[in-house]
Amino acid sequence: MSTLQRILYVEDDPDIQAIARLALENVAGFTVHVCSSGEAAVREAAAFAPDLVLLDVMMPGMDGPSTLAALRTQPLLATTPVVFMTAKVQPSEVSHFRSLGALDVIAKPFDPMSLGTQMRAIWDTRPR
């Protein structure tokens, strides 16, 4: 699979959910499935079979890193690229997230008009 089409988006804040969905579906033309918690994502991920997972870091219950760890245990999602979205964007934090297995980190607040372009650029850096 060489083009990015299906994105699983995990975010607890409904307002940000709405904006990101608009940016990714309406502006960029992706197929997006939104989950409101890490637990929901772990339940629904395999059924959706995403090309890429966009994961908020700070969430009640399962946070981003633990959701990532849980997804990795599912055979279908063992190698699916994961991108974190967080307010914490110090370089040292970015390298920490990368060490957890994230492909990249997108800072909040993000620019909704260029979010799709950003996602495709990251997609192109994935190991093949």
């Binding site: 940000i16 940016a23 309406n26 502006v27 307010a87 909040k108 993000f110 620019d111 909704p112 008009m113």
Partner: peptide, 20 residues
């Protein structure tokens, strides 16, 4: 602070960008 700001900035970005 950033969580509401993300919504505000995102909404304004979409409005200004003509997404809606």
């Amino acid at each position: 602070l950033r969580t509401p700001l993300t919504s505000i900035a995102g909404s304004l970005g979409l409005l200004a960008g003509g997404a809606v």
